[in-house]
């Protein structure tokens, strides 16, 4: 594997459950070292796509590659390079946390005990506790320990923080940054699917927005925040009709206007300025606001 091979390459992926199409003609490339967000509503096709990467499902059309390999043909190699935190974490309930991690470690060539210890302390987990008695948050924490300790090149997180309380969600993300990202820069790739975008905002380098099985937007996060702007204008009097067709969305109330712009911010600002507004401000949309603006447009 050379360094220019994408960590993940998905080309024209299609998958249907019977007649219900879950993923349609989806293409997406994740370069090594990136933290890639995979955003969509519930049922948008995120989990189906991820299952194809893990060979839990076989693509019906198109192809997926993980570090250049087909997960269906090279399942063992692919699984050696990646670790996965599923949306529903299940362990053998009679095993203790310690036994569970030892069991999972037995499948791995490498297991970093130092990081394991550090994460135990960070999460305040009791190794002797039976996994059947853990809370949902604690089960996710154990799953994250199991995913980080093998020090794989690719970490796949499927809705990892859904249903967790805000403190656990924050700790989860801090652990991903602190423990997983401490490897060689450019060699630790993360793919995270979520609809809780705000928490992951600072971590995301690039993202794909998926809706009803189709990729609707793929952008670098910084570029996205530059392109999507919210513009607010207030005039001394109710303004005449201004041509605002370039805006993604327009809200009006008397003398006030609020626009969402996708790449046409400068042009729209200029148009508004011609009518001498009393106040004219602009701010970037957050990734979550971009998600909402794009799917509701």
């Amino acid at each position: 594997m050379d360094s220019s091979t994408p960590a993940i390459q998905i080309e024209n992926l299609c998958y249907a459950y019977g007649r219900a199409e879950a993923v349609h003609d989806l293409s997406m490339t994740v370069q090594p070292g990136r933290c890639y967000g995979f955003f969509g509503r519930n049922g948008a096709g995120k989990t189906t796509t991820m299952k194809c990467l893990l060979n839990l499902l076989r693509p019906q059309r198109g192809q997926v590659r993980v570090f250049g390999l087909d997960p269906a043909k090279h399942e063992v190699e692919v699984k050696r390079w990646l670790s996965y935190v599923p949306d529903q974490v299940a362990f053998y309930p009679w095993m203790s946390v310690r036994e569970t991690l030892d069991y999972l470690a037995s499948f791995r060539a490498n297991w970093n005990r130092k990081i394991e210890q550090e994460l135990f302390e960070r999460f305040g987990l009791d190794p002797s506790q039976r996994t059947g008695n853990l809370s949902k948050g604690q089960r996710t924490q154990v799953a994250l320990i199991a995913a980080v300790c093998p020090e794989t090149d690719l970490l796949v997180l499927d809705e990892p923080t859904s249903g967790l309380d805000p403190i656990v969600r924050r700790e989860f993300i801090e652990a991903v940054i602190g423990a997983y990202q401490q490897g060689i820069p450019g060699q630790r790739t993360i793919l995270v699917s979520t609809h809780l975008i705000t928490e992951f905002e600072g971590l995301i380098d690039e993202f794909t927005l998926i809706d009803r099985g189709r990729a609707v937007l793929t952008l670098d996060a910084d570029q996205a925040r530059e392109r999507f702007q919210k513009i607010r204008a207030r005039f001394a009097e109710v303004p005449p009709e201004i041509d605002l067709k370039a805006a993604l969305r327009v809200r009006r109330d008397g003398r006030e206007l609020e626009l969402i712009a996708n790449g046409s911010g400068a042009e729209l600002m200029e148009r508004l300025r011609q009518h001498n507004p009393e106040a004219l401000t602009t701010e970037s949309l957050t990734l979550e606001e971009i998600f909402v603006a794009t799917l509701k447009a």
Binding site: I173, I177, P185, D205
Partner: peptide
């Protein structure tokens, strides 16, 4: 880099 990235909850590569 590491504690700052964690505290701000931003990618380590961004701080680097």
């Amino acid at each position: 880099i590491r504690p700052l990235a964690e505290e701000l909850r931003v990618n380590r590569n961004t701080v680097a």
